[in-house]
Simulated assay, not measured.
Amino acid sequence: MVSFADIQQAQDLIAPYIKRTPVVQSSLLNAALGHEIFFKAECMQTTGAFKLRGATHFLCQLKKHDALPEHIVANSSGNHAQAVAYAGALFNVPVTIYSANNISPVKAAATRGYGATLLTFDTRLEADAAVEQASKAHSTVWIPPFNHPYIIAGQGTAALEALKQSDDIDMIATPCGGGGLLGGTLVAARAINKHMQVVGAEPLAANDAAQSLRAGRIIPLSGPAITLADGAATPSVGEHTFELLKSIDDFYEVSEDDIIYWTQWLQHLLKLHIEPTCAMTMQAVVNWLAKQTSKKRVMVVISGGNISQASMQKVWQHDRLSTFPSLSLAKELPQ
């Protein structure tokens, strides 16, 4: 199990390679909701997402133990692909990425731009099977997108950093795909303040984590997920991340309509390029805040800012800015 000490060590190891991203606010949003909302802008991280933290930490650990391989392979829908490609270049190790054909074009282009070879397959499951086979080659290391202690500890540094930048946070929220970010956040948050609430959000159209939490066992999606939150369209959580997710305080499934609404509003209010995957977390925040009886200070991890032209067109097809944010938008019950 990943410990707080692991996250602290990860923070020290990756410090030379990553950005210390800012925490931002919107006075308009704070006034509208009646609470203080802080946003950890990992969309401004190198490669445009928090994923660089985990990938870099993985390779830092290998270097520390004089175990850097001759070849790195990874499977990803986009942000992890870019992170591994970039991190591999930092340590001068060739990288091959395995992905489904529906990978976001902007993420695919960036992955190749960082020097990696990108191989695509009809489905995510085929890509996952191919990377597993490739990982058996001599001096090859597979860097998984979430289900590894090194990855979880690396992702947890985003929360550790954010909670050092803003005091007295009552709740911290992140999106959930495979659970690496949410799991690492939970470990960091609980170590800093055992009373801090930790909340997760997942697309209703890719709700394997919610299904798994309800059943008490890992339940994978029955097929490919169709959601604008492509960063959270993972087939299932992993055994490492699931054990951590069992301890979260609230978990919400978010509709595509709400994902679009909050992507528009956060891009508008924060003036940042924000992915639907992390924008959906605001619906979970509103749902949680609607239950509170006193003013709260909430940290939201804006996990990434890599969004394709096609996704952006879908997001802005209909203007949602005429409906101003308020706690009346709360609708879904926690699972």
Rank of each mutant, 00 (worst) to 15 (best):
S166P: 05
L182V: 01
S255R: 07
D128H: 15
D128G: 11
R190G: 09
T157K: 11
T277M: 07
V106P: 06
P69D: 04
K295F: 05
K164Q: 00
G113I: 09
T234Q: 07
A55P: 02
E253A: 00
T241N: 12
S247W: 13
S322D: 03
M196N: 12
A215E: 12
I97P: 05
L270S: 09
G183Y: 09
I259R: 14
N193M: 05
L321E: 14
P22W: 02
V237K: 01
N207H: 11
E332L: 09
L269Q: 03
H268M: 06
F242Y: 04
Q317Y: 10
P16G: 06
A108C: 02
I218P: 07
L321P: 13
T96E: 14
R124L: 10
P235T: 05
N306Y: 10
K64C: 03
F251Y: 11
D249G: 01
D257A: 15
T174I: 04
T140P: 04
Q264P: 06
A87E: 03
M280T: 01
E36K: 01
I151T: 15
R320D: 03
I259G: 05
L266W: 13
G180K: 12
V93K: 00
L68E: 13
Q8Y: 06
I151L: 13
T185Y: 10
G180P: 01
F121H: 15
V254E: 01
Q9G: 03
E126A: 02
Q335E: 00
G34A: 07
